[in-house]
């Protein structure tokens, strides 16, 4: 339970299938089947299920619109899919059976439980991949919406002060990946660890408030990841006006 690395269940070729990969696939198939079902059975007079999905989508779309304005239609799919994936992964990893049902295996002479399912976001590889996708998509959207010239002028400039600021921007792009991934991973992993410790102390009723806390943490962290992605994308897709252009205009 206390190990950072996910437990390996089987290997296909050289690719290890870990318990977090299994959970990622479960979450993916859940989300894909729900979205396929909703998009196939869409009606003018919505059913209860369609209504629920629409209200969730609409609230996030309104938030995106209020922050990103004209670029909202490009940004919204990323924000929504990050939010849904992380929320589903966080909440389903609190279900009973995660980290407890598995089989015993001899690891260095000791018998250890290898759980079949483990929360996807409690694996640094998953959160790091999510953060990488988020930052790379931000840069691609920036090139697509503001043009390559404007994009490059954000980081490199002939003005020495702007060049220095651009270098700082470049460094902040790297720290963005680290902070996004560590924030999500740390919160969920710490939550898992807390729940395991508390359940060891006293198994009945006592872990309940902690479970409630972890539910809130899972919701808030998925919201934080989505909103940060949204804000980064909104900042990088607004055209960057270099100083000399403004001088020409005035």
């Amino acid at each position: 339970m206390a190990s950072f690395a996910p437990e390996i269940l089987a290997t296909v070729g050289t690719f290890p299938i870990t318990n977090t990969v299994v959970h990622t696939l479960v979450v993916d198939s859940l989300l894909i089947s729900i979205s396929l079902y909703v998009s196939r059975t869409i009606k003018t007079i919505p059913s209860f299920f369609q209504n629920t999905v629409e209200s969730i989508l609409e609230s996030v779309l309104n938030l995106t619109d209020s922050i990103a304005h004209s670029a909202a239609q490009y940004i919204f799919p990323y924000v929504m899919s990050f939010f849904l994936f992380i929320l589903t992964a966080n909440l389903t990893s609190l279900l009973p059976g995660f980290g407890t049902i598995g089989f015993y295996e001899d690891v260095e002479g000791k018998k250890e439980l290898i759980p079949i399912l483990r929360g996807a976001t409690s694996d640094i590889n998953v959160t790091f991949a999510l953060a990488l996708v988020s930052v790379l998509a931000t840069h691609m959207l920036s090139i697509k919406l503001t043009g390559i010239k404007d994009y490059v002028s954000r980081f490199f400039s002939l003005n020495p002060i702007n060049l220095f600021v651009g270098m700082l921007e470049l460094v902040s792009e790297i720290t963005k990946v680290l902070s996004l991934s560590f924030r999500l991973f740390g919160n969920i992993f710490a939550g898992e660890f807390t729940l395991a410790t508390v359940s060891k102390l006293f198994a009945f009723l006592f872990p309940l408030p902690f479970l409630l806390l972890e539910t809130i943490v899972g919701l808030v962290q998925s919201l934080v990841f989505a909103i940060l992605t949204l804000v980064f994308m909104a900042i990088l897709t607004t055209p960057h006006h270099p100083q000399h252009e403004e001088v020409i205009h005035t």
């Binding site: 560590f182 924030r183 740390g186 934080v224």
Partner: peptide
Amino acid sequence: MLLGMAFAEAIAIYSLI
């Protein structure tokens, strides 16, 4: 408030890692 707390908590989480 919860969002602000989550950001502040992230610093503690880094030191936890």
